[in-house]
Protein backbone atom coordinates (compact mmCIF):
# COMPACT_ATOMS: atom_id res chain seq x y z
CA UNK A 1 0.00 0.00 0.00
CA UNK A 2 1.55 3.25 -1.10
CA UNK A 3 1.70 5.81 1.62
CA UNK A 4 2.24 9.45 0.82
CA UNK A 5 4.43 11.36 3.20
CA UNK A 6 2.79 14.63 2.31
CA UNK A 7 0.47 15.85 5.05
CA UNK A 8 -3.03 16.32 3.75
CA UNK A 9 -5.20 19.25 4.64
CA UNK A 10 -7.39 17.18 6.90
CA UNK A 11 -4.41 15.67 8.69
CA UNK A 12 -4.82 15.32 12.43
CA UNK A 13 -2.49 14.35 15.22
CA UNK A 14 -3.54 11.42 17.39
CA UNK A 15 -3.72 13.74 20.39
CA UNK A 16 -6.02 16.31 18.88
CA UNK A 17 -6.88 18.24 15.78
CA UNK A 18 -4.15 20.23 14.11
CA UNK A 19 -5.30 23.70 13.23
CA UNK A 20 -4.81 24.36 9.57
CA UNK A 21 -5.63 27.81 8.23
CA UNK A 22 -8.13 27.88 5.41
CA UNK A 23 -5.49 29.23 3.03
CA UNK A 24 -3.03 26.50 3.81
CA UNK A 25 -1.77 26.22 0.25
CA UNK A 26 0.83 28.91 0.52
CA UNK A 27 1.82 27.98 4.07
CA UNK A 28 2.56 24.29 3.81
CA UNK A 29 5.86 24.59 5.75
CA UNK A 30 4.04 25.54 8.95
CA UNK A 31 1.85 22.47 8.54
CA UNK A 32 4.80 20.25 7.83
CA UNK A 33 6.44 21.26 11.12
CA UNK A 34 3.75 19.42 13.02
CA UNK A 35 4.49 15.70 13.27
CA UNK A 36 1.75 14.21 11.18
CA UNK A 37 1.36 10.47 10.73
CA UNK A 38 1.66 9.46 7.11
CA UNK A 39 -1.75 8.67 5.69
CA UNK A 40 -2.82 6.47 2.85
CA UNK A 41 -3.28 8.31 -0.40
CA UNK A 42 -6.69 9.87 -0.10
CA UNK A 43 -6.77 13.17 -1.87
CA UNK A 44 -10.44 13.98 -1.43
CA UNK A 45 -11.83 11.83 1.32
CA UNK A 46 -10.18 11.15 4.64
CA UNK A 47 -9.34 7.59 5.59
CA UNK A 48 -10.63 7.05 9.11
CA UNK A 49 -10.08 3.72 10.74
CA UNK A 50 -11.91 2.51 13.81
CA UNK A 51 -9.66 -0.42 14.68
CA UNK A 52 -5.92 -0.96 14.52
CA UNK A 53 -6.16 -4.21 12.58
CA UNK A 54 -3.55 -4.07 9.85
CA UNK A 55 -3.71 -5.61 6.39
CA UNK A 56 -2.42 -8.91 7.78
CA UNK A 57 -5.13 -9.07 10.43
CA UNK A 58 -2.72 -8.23 13.26
CA UNK A 59 -3.86 -5.79 15.90
CA UNK A 60 -1.42 -4.17 18.33
CA UNK A 61 -4.16 -3.93 20.92
CA UNK A 62 -4.99 -7.62 20.65
CA UNK A 63 -1.29 -8.36 20.71
CA UNK A 64 -0.93 -6.40 23.97
CA UNK A 65 -3.71 -8.46 25.47
CA UNK A 66 -2.04 -11.65 24.31
CA UNK A 67 1.21 -10.47 25.92
CA UNK A 68 -0.57 -9.81 29.18
CA UNK A 69 -2.22 -13.22 29.24
CA UNK A 70 0.73 -15.20 27.93
CA UNK A 71 3.37 -13.25 29.92
CA UNK A 72 3.03 -15.26 33.16
CA UNK A 73 3.18 -18.53 31.21
CA UNK A 74 6.32 -17.31 29.43
CA UNK A 75 8.05 -16.14 32.61
CA UNK A 76 6.91 -18.55 35.31
CA UNK A 77 5.72 -21.68 33.56
CA UNK A 78 8.27 -22.19 30.77
CA UNK A 79 10.85 -19.75 32.23
CA UNK A 80 12.01 -19.00 28.69
CA UNK A 81 15.71 -18.28 28.33
CA UNK A 82 17.32 -16.69 25.28
CA UNK A 83 20.82 -17.03 23.96
CA UNK A 84 21.95 -14.67 21.19
CA UNK A 85 18.87 -12.49 20.98
CA UNK A 86 21.18 -9.73 19.68
CA UNK A 87 21.58 -11.68 16.42
CA UNK A 88 18.01 -10.82 15.47
CA UNK A 89 18.08 -7.62 13.42
CA UNK A 90 16.48 -4.61 15.11
CA UNK A 91 15.56 -3.14 11.73
CA UNK A 92 15.02 -4.46 8.23
CA UNK A 93 13.40 -7.67 7.13
CA UNK A 94 14.55 -11.12 8.21
CA UNK A 95 13.13 -14.61 8.00
CA UNK A 96 13.33 -16.46 11.30
CA UNK A 97 13.48 -20.22 10.87
CA UNK A 98 12.99 -22.57 13.78
CA UNK A 99 12.34 -26.17 14.69
CA UNK A 100 8.75 -27.00 15.60
CA UNK A 101 7.49 -29.46 18.21
CA UNK A 102 4.68 -30.41 20.57
CA UNK A 103 1.08 -31.25 19.69
CA UNK A 104 0.15 -27.61 20.34
CA UNK A 105 3.59 -26.13 19.75
CA UNK A 106 4.89 -23.93 22.59
CA UNK A 107 7.80 -22.67 20.49
CA UNK A 108 5.86 -20.24 18.26
CA UNK A 109 4.34 -18.09 21.05
CA UNK A 110 7.59 -18.17 23.03
CA UNK A 111 9.68 -16.88 20.11
CA UNK A 112 7.13 -14.25 19.07
CA UNK A 113 6.53 -13.04 22.64
CA UNK A 114 10.24 -12.85 23.46
CA UNK A 115 11.22 -10.86 20.38
CA UNK A 116 8.27 -8.49 20.58
CA UNK A 117 8.96 -7.80 24.28
CA UNK A 118 12.72 -7.41 23.96
CA UNK A 119 13.10 -5.79 20.53
CA UNK A 120 9.77 -4.00 20.44
CA UNK A 121 9.07 -4.89 16.83
CA UNK A 122 6.27 -7.12 15.55
CA UNK A 123 6.87 -10.69 14.47
CA UNK A 124 4.52 -12.24 11.93
CA UNK A 125 4.11 -15.99 12.29
CA UNK A 126 3.68 -17.79 8.98
CA UNK A 127 1.40 -20.79 9.38
CA UNK A 128 -0.60 -23.41 7.64
CA UNK A 129 -4.06 -22.68 6.18
CA UNK A 130 -5.61 -24.90 8.89
CA UNK A 131 -5.63 -21.86 11.18
CA UNK A 132 -7.77 -19.90 8.79
CA UNK A 133 -10.36 -22.65 8.69
CA UNK A 134 -10.88 -22.66 12.46
CA UNK A 135 -13.53 -20.30 13.83
CA UNK A 136 -12.45 -18.14 16.80
CA UNK A 137 -8.95 -19.65 17.00
CA UNK A 138 -8.23 -18.54 13.46
CA UNK A 139 -9.29 -14.98 14.21
CA UNK A 140 -7.30 -14.85 17.45
CA UNK A 141 -4.29 -16.23 15.60
CA UNK A 142 -4.57 -13.56 12.91
CA UNK A 143 -5.01 -10.76 15.47
CA UNK A 144 -1.83 -11.82 17.25
CA UNK A 145 0.28 -11.81 14.10
CA UNK A 146 -0.49 -15.06 12.31
CA UNK A 147 -0.34 -14.95 8.52
CA UNK A 148 -0.90 -17.71 5.98
CA UNK A 149 2.43 -19.09 4.75
CA UNK A 150 1.97 -18.06 1.13
CA UNK A 151 4.93 -16.94 -1.01
CA UNK A 152 3.15 -13.68 -1.93
CA UNK A 153 2.46 -12.89 1.73
CA UNK A 154 6.04 -13.65 2.76
CA UNK A 155 7.47 -11.54 -0.06
CA UNK A 156 5.31 -8.55 0.81
CA UNK A 157 6.15 -8.81 4.51
CA UNK A 158 9.88 -9.28 4.05
CA UNK A 159 10.73 -7.32 0.92
CA UNK A 160 8.19 -4.51 0.77
CA UNK A 161 7.56 -3.98 4.45
CA UNK A 162 10.91 -5.17 5.88
CA UNK A 163 9.24 -7.03 8.74
CA UNK A 164 10.26 -10.03 10.78
CA UNK A 165 8.55 -13.26 9.77
CA UNK A 166 8.80 -16.54 11.62
CA UNK A 167 8.45 -19.80 9.77
CA UNK A 168 8.63 -23.47 10.73
CA UNK A 169 9.69 -25.34 7.58
CA UNK A 170 8.89 -28.69 9.20
CA UNK A 171 5.23 -27.71 9.45
CA UNK A 172 2.90 -30.27 10.93
CA UNK A 173 5.46 -33.00 10.30
CA UNK A 174 7.40 -31.45 13.19
CA UNK A 175 4.51 -30.92 15.59
CA UNK A 176 2.80 -34.21 14.78
CA UNK A 177 5.80 -36.41 15.46
CA UNK A 178 5.88 -39.02 18.18
CA UNK A 179 7.69 -38.30 21.46
CA UNK A 180 10.25 -41.04 20.71
CA UNK A 181 11.30 -38.99 17.63
CA UNK A 182 11.95 -35.86 19.68
CA UNK A 183 14.60 -33.44 18.44
CA UNK A 184 14.93 -35.36 15.17
CA UNK A 185 14.28 -32.63 12.62
CA UNK A 186 11.90 -33.55 9.83
CA UNK A 187 12.35 -32.58 6.20
CA UNK A 188 12.43 -28.79 5.75
CA UNK A 189 9.57 -28.72 3.27
CA UNK A 190 10.77 -28.21 -0.28
CA UNK A 191 13.12 -25.38 0.55
CA UNK A 192 10.49 -22.73 -0.15
CA UNK A 193 11.68 -20.66 2.80
CA UNK A 194 15.15 -20.32 1.26
CA UNK A 195 13.69 -19.27 -2.06
CA UNK A 196 11.53 -16.62 -0.38
CA UNK A 197 14.47 -15.21 1.56
CA UNK A 198 16.52 -15.07 -1.66
CA UNK A 199 13.74 -13.37 -3.58
CA UNK A 200 13.13 -10.90 -0.76
CA UNK A 201 16.86 -10.27 -0.31
CA UNK A 202 16.70 -10.78 3.46
CA UNK A 203 18.85 -12.92 5.76
CA UNK A 204 17.62 -16.14 7.35
CA UNK A 205 18.07 -16.29 11.11
CA UNK A 206 18.05 -19.93 12.27
CA UNK A 207 16.66 -20.54 15.74
CA UNK A 208 16.97 -23.73 17.84
CA UNK A 209 14.36 -24.32 20.55
CA UNK A 210 14.68 -26.91 23.31
CA UNK A 211 11.76 -27.71 25.59
CA UNK A 212 8.76 -27.48 23.29
CA UNK A 213 8.97 -31.23 22.67
CA UNK A 214 8.44 -31.94 26.36
CA UNK A 215 5.75 -29.26 26.79
CA UNK A 216 3.22 -31.38 24.95
CA UNK A 217 4.60 -34.78 23.98
CA UNK A 218 2.59 -37.01 21.67
CA UNK A 219 2.34 -40.53 23.08
CA UNK A 220 -0.02 -42.02 20.56
CA UNK A 221 -1.87 -40.85 17.47
CA UNK A 222 -4.75 -42.07 15.38
CA UNK A 223 -4.59 -41.53 11.64
CA UNK A 224 -8.22 -42.55 10.89
CA UNK A 225 -9.52 -40.22 13.61
CA UNK A 226 -7.41 -37.36 12.27
CA UNK A 227 -8.79 -37.96 8.79
CA UNK A 228 -12.31 -38.02 10.13
CA UNK A 229 -11.84 -34.72 12.01
CA UNK A 230 -9.96 -33.12 9.14
CA UNK A 231 -6.96 -32.40 11.37
CA UNK A 232 -3.30 -32.98 10.49
CA UNK A 233 -3.05 -35.37 13.48
CA UNK A 234 -5.24 -36.56 16.36
CA UNK A 235 -2.95 -37.42 19.26
CA UNK A 236 -3.11 -38.59 22.87
CA UNK A 237 -0.68 -36.30 24.65
CA UNK A 238 0.99 -36.60 28.04
CA UNK A 239 -0.91 -33.45 29.04
CA UNK A 240 -4.27 -35.13 28.65
CA UNK A 241 -3.17 -37.71 31.21
CA UNK A 242 -1.27 -35.36 33.53
CA UNK A 243 -4.03 -32.74 33.62
CA UNK A 244 -6.94 -35.19 33.36
CA UNK A 245 -8.48 -33.48 36.39
CA UNK A 246 -8.85 -30.28 34.35
CA UNK A 247 -10.97 -32.04 31.75
CA UNK A 248 -10.78 -30.81 28.17
CA UNK A 249 -8.86 -27.74 29.29
CA UNK A 250 -6.02 -30.01 30.42
CA UNK A 251 -5.39 -30.98 26.82
CA UNK A 252 -4.56 -27.34 26.05
CA UNK A 253 -2.27 -26.64 29.03
CA UNK A 254 1.39 -27.37 28.31
CA UNK A 255 3.66 -29.17 30.78
CA UNK A 256 6.03 -26.77 32.57
CA UNK A 257 9.09 -27.71 30.56
CA UNK A 258 11.96 -25.22 30.60
CA UNK A 259 12.25 -23.59 27.18
CA UNK A 260 15.64 -22.52 25.92
CA UNK A 261 16.01 -20.62 22.67
CA UNK A 262 19.32 -20.19 20.89
CA UNK A 263 19.60 -17.79 17.96
CA UNK A 264 22.23 -18.91 15.45
CA UNK A 265 24.29 -16.75 13.09
CA UNK A 266 22.20 -15.19 10.32
CA UNK A 267 22.66 -16.69 6.86
CA UNK A 268 22.82 -14.35 3.88
CA UNK A 269 22.69 -15.43 0.27
CA UNK A 270 24.94 -14.23 -2.48
CA UNK A 271 22.20 -13.96 -5.09
CA UNK A 272 20.22 -11.16 -6.71
CA UNK A 273 16.80 -10.56 -5.15
CA UNK A 274 13.56 -10.44 -7.19
CA UNK A 275 14.48 -13.26 -9.56
CA UNK A 276 11.56 -15.36 -10.79
CA UNK A 277 13.40 -18.56 -9.87
CA UNK A 278 16.59 -19.73 -8.25
CA UNK A 279 18.79 -22.73 -8.85
CA UNK A 280 17.00 -25.72 -7.38
CA UNK A 281 20.24 -27.29 -6.22
CA UNK A 282 21.39 -24.10 -4.52
CA UNK A 283 18.05 -23.78 -2.73
CA UNK A 284 18.10 -27.40 -1.56
CA UNK A 285 21.74 -27.17 -0.44
CA UNK A 286 21.09 -24.03 1.59
CA UNK A 287 17.93 -25.53 3.06
CA UNK A 288 19.77 -28.66 4.12
CA UNK A 289 22.68 -26.61 5.51
CA UNK A 290 20.32 -24.56 7.69
CA UNK A 291 18.52 -27.71 8.83
CA UNK A 292 21.82 -29.33 9.78
CA UNK A 293 22.88 -26.16 11.55
CA UNK A 294 19.75 -26.18 13.73
CA UNK A 295 20.02 -29.94 14.30
CA UNK A 296 23.63 -29.60 15.53
CA UNK A 297 22.65 -26.73 17.82
CA UNK A 298 19.81 -28.83 19.29
CA UNK A 299 22.13 -31.74 20.09
CA UNK A 300 24.60 -29.29 21.58
CA UNK A 301 21.92 -27.77 23.81
CA UNK A 302 20.60 -31.18 24.81
CA UNK A 303 24.09 -32.29 25.89
CA UNK A 304 24.20 -29.35 28.32
CA UNK A 305 20.68 -29.86 29.61
CA UNK A 306 20.54 -31.43 33.06
CA UNK A 307 16.80 -31.44 33.58
CA UNK A 308 13.77 -31.19 31.31
CA UNK A 309 12.05 -29.03 33.92
CA UNK A 310 14.90 -26.90 35.25
CA UNK A 311 17.22 -26.68 32.25
Amino acid sequence: MARSEKPTKTATKPGGAVKVPASAHGRTPSVALVPVPSKPEAPHHGDQRRSDVDEWGRSSKSRDWAHRIYGPLYRSWHRVEWDGLDKIPTSGGALLVSNHAGAIPADAPAIMHGIEEQLGRPVYGLADEMFKRLPVAGTLWARSGGVLAHPDNAYRLLREQQQLALVFPEGTKGTGKHYRDRYQLRRFGRGGFVQIAMRAGVPIVPIAVVGAEEAMPILWKSTPLAKMLGLPYAPITANMIAFAALGPLGALLPLPAKIKIRVLDPVTFDVEPDQPRYSRSLVMDESERIRQHIQDALFDMLRDRQSVWFG
Binding site: A2, E41, A42, P43, H44, H45, G46, D47, Q48, R49
Partner: peptide
Protein backbone atom coordinates in the same frame (compact mmCIF):
# COMPACT_ATOMS: atom_id res chain seq x y z
CA UNK B 1 -15.62 -16.40 6.14
CA UNK B 2 -12.35 -15.63 4.40
CA UNK B 3 -12.51 -12.13 2.92
CA UNK B 4 -10.45 -11.01 -0.03
CA UNK B 5 -7.82 -8.41 -0.79
CA UNK B 6 -6.51 -7.43 -4.18
CA UNK B 7 -3.37 -5.53 -5.08
CA UNK B 8 -4.43 -2.27 -6.74
CA UNK B 9 -0.98 -1.00 -7.61
CA UNK B 10 -0.90 -1.90 -11.29
CA UNK B 11 -3.59 0.58 -12.27
CA UNK B 12 -2.04 3.20 -9.99
CA UNK B 13 1.26 2.78 -11.81
CA UNK B 14 -0.57 3.76 -14.98
CA UNK B 15 -1.45 7.03 -13.27
CA UNK B 16 -4.88 6.34 -11.80
CA UNK B 17 -5.73 7.91 -8.43
CA UNK B 18 -8.49 6.67 -6.22
CA UNK B 19 -10.85 9.20 -4.68
CA UNK B 20 -11.78 6.83 -1.87
CA UNK B 21 -9.93 4.32 0.28
CA UNK B 22 -11.78 1.25 1.55
CA UNK B 23 -12.73 2.91 4.82
CA UNK B 24 -13.67 6.21 3.16
CA UNK B 25 -15.93 4.23 0.83
CA UNK B 26 -17.76 2.66 3.76
CA UNK B 27 -18.00 6.01 5.54
CA UNK B 28 -19.53 7.64 2.47
Amino acid sequence: RHGRGVDNRRLKQRGFHYDYTSSATVTD
